[in-house]
Nucleic acid binder design. Structure first.
Lengths: 341, 341
DNA sequence: TGTAGCGTCGTAAACGTTTACGCCAACGTT
DNA sequence: AACGTTGGCGTAAACGTTTACGACGCTACA
């Protein structure tokens, strides 16, 4: 005898009553409920999730898909850890669990996602690192799985998403550099088809235009989103005949490799090249010279993600009457020394 | 009509036969199997995991518990990402999925684990960041859940574990520094009760003893395992009246804060203080001066973890006749400039 | 006294799958 | 011709829950 059945036998009541007591239903006496909860705690009873899922067609868990591949933006040191924490804080209010679903590097993300939703091990999903055209969005929409994307996409449809303010960051970076006298400003963008690169580039172009500066395609530096990419970025910049005097970065750890490349050439950030980094993080805080970059709260971002997801899950939507939000997450500029300003 | 029932109806055969065909059982004709697989692929059928789990009492998934809290050794996204990839590579051979279980910062890890195993959403578990006494190990043992620990522990029992070679790293660090003439060598250890700190310290002491050097408790620097901890470490060292000339680190990102602290004092790693870092990582590769540290393959580590876990899962043990392995994972010294050698 | 309403609880079906068991036809052997 | 064997398939139970439904006893009110 196992599970709820054992509990019921122990208390000499039916399993139906036990279930109702545990689930907080109204039609059970206070006395019985007390006895059930007490016995459950004592016997360490936890409902078998498979049984629940099968019966009610939901799993009481949501998934967060992450891609393990290198060169994926956001895939840095403690980014997801911080976001997860915020997500859980909100989910806990509804007794929902979070499972992270790491997509292997050698598997197609869409195929992986399809497997996961087929298995029905989560009720809703958060996907990250959206691509310009992201088949996962079509898949989730078609399968009617509630989801929210961390990152915009050009895939049509009015699905909910949250995204960092890539164009705002690019714009403010250019503004700041222009007002300090720079006219040749390079922009680093990812070398893959991840969508944020396009958004970043758009912001960069728009800002140049507003300042009456010409757009020079040779100043768009495509490098992988990694420390090594930053190193390569530095190499590419130094190799140019008509060097930019400043560069804005789209990924937080590019600055590290770039610093190194400059150091090897006897140059220094802020003095020989103005650098505006992306997301403030534990690493950037300890770089010398201090990196000018943008701050955001990962925990708040995670909480907003979870709220947006819950808003699109019928069972929880009434508590989050947001509709399908599409929101750009603001980031605060933290002045440092790397831009020489 | 849904699921396997729909598939069976479509093909005019019984659901039992469909199930057997999909699961590769022998008592089904080649012709029938072909038709079933074809129809399943076409209709996009994926077995409902809840139904399977309920019936066969297993979930075809294993969990990897990670703790979100700061100051946990190894607690960086890129560390786990690398390990996950190796784990998945092995699990895929058995059609097992990996789910990462992030324990919220504000929840007790043991209570969290208990909830997860109660829900029975995984058949086996990998736990990480083991503490000196780790209640999770008792819990898993008592519940007879197959598991492997990433990290040793003083908790008794012969459970399987894998651990980085903390004492070996400490010993080799001291050896290297002593042969370069250093006699006052500090050791950074974590300020919490995570077990690796004790192992590291033991290796440090043993090495000193073998070289006939006295053990000076004031040279044991307890700092949080974070970049900020490294900064504090630098501060503490510089504040000492009788400064060490060298320091060995137990955590990969300590070096970053330490470098910064030195830079602010006008000092430099390798010249004014010999530093031997811990794990080579994307950040350390781009620090100047180049950090002397230790290399390991995260992917291989993940694969070994998965193999060890499978070896303790009855359903897969025959393919992994290892028994309960307790293994120290080797790390290769990568000379840099930070130790001045 | 009859009855409606309410609070409490038991009963049993249902969720989607796997698998033990048994049946049937075909075939080979004696 | 009788019998055993085998390959292939259908049947139905079982896994642990939740929940619609109905039963029962009690109170209150007509």
């Amino acid at each position: 005898m196992k599970g709820i059945r054992r509990l019921a036998q122990e208390l000499n009541i039916s399993i139906g009553t036990v279930s109702r007591a545990l689930n907080g239903r109204a039609d059970v006496s206070d006395e019985t409920r007390r006895r059930v909860l007490e016995a459950a705690a004592e016997m360490g009873y936890v409902p078998n999730q498979a049984g629940r899922s099968l019966r009610q067609g939901s799993t009481n868990a949501v998934g967060f898909m992450i891609e393990l591949g290198a060169d994926i933006n956001g895939n840095s040191d403690t980014f997801f850890m911080g976001v997860f924490d915020g997500v859980q804080a909100v989910l806990a209010r509804h007794h929902l669990d979070l499972v992270a679903l790491p997509c292997p590097t050698d598997e197609n993300p869409t195929a992986y996602l399809q497997r996961m939703i087929g298995r029905r091990l989560v009720d809703g999903l958060i996907i990250s690192a959206t691509h310009r055209k992201d088949a996962r969005i079509d898949l989730l929409t078609k399968a009617r799985i509630p989801f929210v994307a961390l990152g915009r996409s050009m895939t049509p449809g009015d699905y909910p998403w949250l995204d960092l303010d890539f164009d705002g960051v690019a714009r403010r970076g250019v503004d700041r550099l222009v007002s300090a006298g720079h006219t040749r400003i390079a922009a680093a963008v990812p070398s893959n088809d991840i969508n944020l690169g396009f958004v970043f580039l758009d912001g960069y172009k728009a800002a140049l235009k507003r300042h009456g500066l010409p757009f020079d395609p040779s100043l768009v530096m495509r490098v992988p989103s990694s420390e090594l990419g930053g190193y390569q970025l530095g190499h590419d910049i130094l190799a140019m005949k008509n060097r930019p005097t400043a560069v804005i970065l789209n990924y937080e750890l590019l600055a590290l490799g770039l610093y190194r490349q400059l150091a090897e050439a006897g140059l220094q950030a802020g003095r020989d090249l103005a650098i505006i980094g992306f997301r403030e993080n534990p690493v950037s805080r300890f770089m010398s010279p201090r990196l000018t970059c943008f701050r955001l709260s990962l925990r708040d971002l995670g909480m907003a993600l979870a709220e947006s997801l819950l808003a699109s899950m019928p069972a929880y939507a009434d508590a989050y009457p947001l509709g399908t939000v599409q929101r750009v997450w603001p980031m605060e500029l933290i002045p440092g020394e790397s831009d020489g300003i």
